[in-house]
């Protein structure tokens, strides 16, 4: 199976959507309009988009604090995502969750989590539900190289393999957990090397190439749906921005060299995908420019939508605490 023109173009559109969305968030943050933390996904777009391109609406995803790219890649609405980041009532979580907790259960986005690795068991449980209820959806969880060191991660992978659960563990290895480098925190060369210890396939891929991510995910999804169990995919990627907005003002020293950042930025997933489409004759330069322009307008609209959305009211404070209020 290969991706067709429509799919490739849609992937590019979503990558642009994430990139411009994040650029808008950075701008909003620097103007002081955004008070809480936010973690830009810029540089890693191909991972979320390549992975979600292999999923259906009914498939479930869960993610982490670097939280805007995953829901947008799954088809989330940028208006509601931006409104949530500004804490507005039209936001995905009515302003209760904010940047780190975007979720849209209606299209399988089970939520982003601020506690590192805490989504990994959740996605495992979603896969357990699919198996127990004999439904054919799969679940996929995005987590970082840092998260791979949490007990919750190891425990989940063992259970998933033991029970042949339809889950895809998508490790976004961007080389760092805040300032701590991969080599100072992981005992093996690759997170995917650990897969054999759990008895599942471990696949190492280029996370800057959306098509490569799609290929690996597509095979993992096939396995999962066929009842063959989980797969651990490690996508090598890089975040072009600092860990979180404003961190540069807090931390006391540099943890990456400028050369390393510059070098990584030569492998920008957007131009990589754009040229792949053009080289294979699936799109022209004009078509790509057109997509970019449309998405720019879409994001401007999202910012305006978010700004115009009302704040939640004081009486909303206790809403949504309970299924049956106490």
């Amino acid at each position: 199976m290969a991706l067709d023109k429509q799919q490739l173009v849609e992937m590019y559109r979503r990558m642009c959507r994430i990139r411009y969305f994040e650029e808008a968030v950075i701008e909003i943050h620097s103007s002081g309009e955004l008070i809480g933390p936010a973690h830009p996904y810029i540089g890693e777009e191909a991972v979320a988009v390549g992975a979600c391109a292999a999923l259906r609406d009914t498939d479930r995803i869960a993610g982490n604090h670097r939280s805007h790219g995953h829901p947008i890649a799954k088809g989330g609405d940028v208006n509601r995502a931006m409104a949530e980041i500004l804490g507005k009532s039209d936001g995905y979580c009515k302003g209760k969750g904010g940047s780190m907790h975007l979720a849209d259960f209606s299209i399988g986005i089970l939520g982003e989590s601020g506690i590192v690795a805490s989504s990994v068991p959740i996605a495992t449980g979603a896969a357990l539900a699919a198996k127990l209820s004999k439904q054919d959806f799969v679940s996929l969880v995005f987590f970082g190289d840092g998260a791979s060191n949490q007990g919750a991660c190891h425990e989940s992978m063992n259970m998933a393999s033991l029970w042949d659960l339809p889950v895809i563990f998508m490790c976004e290895n961007n080389g760092y957990a805040i300032t701590t480098s991969y080599k100072n925190s992981v005992s093996v060369d690759h997170v995917s090397d650990r897969a054999s210890a759990y008895g599942m396939p471990g696949v190492l891929i280029d996370g800057q190439d959306a098509i490569a991510v799609w290929e690996a995910t597509n095979e993992a999804v096939r396995r999962a749906r066929a009842g063959e169990g989980p797969t651990l995919i490690e996508a090598m990627t890089y975040r072009f921005e600092d860990h979180s907005l404003g961190l540069d003002k807090i931390r006391k020293s540099e943890y990456r060299t400028q050369e390393e950042v510059d070098e990584a930025m030569t492998r920008d997933p957007l131009p990589i995908h754009r040229s792949a489409m053009i080289n294979q004759g699936f799109a022209t330069d004009d078509e790509c420019d057109e997509i970019e322009a449309t998405v720019h307008t879409e994001i401007e609209g999202a910012v305006e939508f978010a700004r115009n959305s009302p704040y939640p009211k004081p009486e909303d404070l206790y809403e949504d605490m309970w299924a049956t209020p106490v």
Partner: peptide, 16 residues
């Protein structure tokens, strides 16, 4: 603090 989880919105958080 109010017996509610901490809401994100700047319109709600200070209330708790």
């Amino acid at each position: 603090s109010e017996q509610v989880n901490v809401p994100y919105s700047p319109a709600l958080e200070p209330l708790i």
